[in-house]
Write a protein that binds this DNA or RNA. Structure first.
Lengths: 139, 139
DNA sequence: TAAATTTGTTATGCAAGGCTAACATTTTGG
DNA sequence: CCAAAATGTTAGCCTTGCATAACAAATTTA
């Protein structure tokens, strides 16, 4: 529980909180419960941990809000997710659902260094669309 | 513990057993302990689970051997590892250690479908080396 | 507004995967 | 061959992450 470190699981909860707040302006525990397919009790537990680590503001029966630290962290995670999913979808040609599902696992593992290279590679491939054309014809 | 399913952790143990047996003809628990940086006790526990699931042959104070099922599974895992590591090293230009370390996490998550596409993409890029040249100059 | 429903919390328990310490067995080197 | 060292096992404990059930608070609605 080294204060600032987040497990994969807690990263998922934080990501969900961030996305919901961005979409709706607020988020309720039961929404998280449904989105992540876990019990309400598990959500309570996870939110307490995130609050203790200062990623969100939260107390018994209180509204959930996200801190600046939480926003920063959530953006990092979501950026990783997007870069990975984009590589799978746009370059490898994987169907969206599968791309998203696997990206969701990898986002917790990939290093900043590899992510940066992968992002650059995505951009490179966008700038040379005939490349992907050629790959799609073979594979 | 649904009989044939292996957790990430057990996949790591099996991979290690397979590699050691291939290199040296045999493997001892203490070697696994060192390679995976876990206690001897944890190795005993993991080996018992792998034996129960029929991936290895193993009993108290007995030599460890791998079953046909184990070999098949280990090859799958190692193939995943190699495809991922190769993409990181040869295409993104990641340094070997980091490529191996991250591949070791992803190999437990990636689907067969994505792996197959990634492998095809590795081959495609090998057949067009000027591509990677160009990317390296930009990124 | 008071009862019913929904949502949140707490208590408790389970499984996985790890640890240490003590004990058992095997291997090694005088 | 036998004592010391190395290796393997067991017992007991911890943490994470999940669950269910019972209870508390908030919200909805009749």
């Amino acid at each position: 529980m080294s204060d600032k470190i987040l497990s994969s699981s807690l990263e998922d909860y934080l990501e969900c909180v961030y996305n919901r707040i961005n979409l709706n302006g607020s988020v309720k525990a039961i929404e998280i419960s449904k989105e992540l397919s876990v019990s309400r009790a598990s959500v309570t537990e996870a939110l307490n941990k995130l609050a203790q680590k200062k990623y969100i503001n939260y107390g018994r029966y209180e509204m959930i809000s996200i801190t600046d630290l939480g926003i920063e962290k959530a953006k990092e995670i979501i950026n990783k997710h997007n870069v990975i999913q984009s590589f799978f979808e746009n370059i490898l040609g994987i169907e969206k659902d599968e791309a998203a599902r696997v990206a969701c696992g990898i986002e917790h593992i990939i290093t900043e260094n590899i992510l940066q290279k992968l992002s650059a590679f995505n951009n490179f491939c966008s700038s040379e669309p005939e490349l992907i054309e050629k790959f799609r014809q073979k594979g």
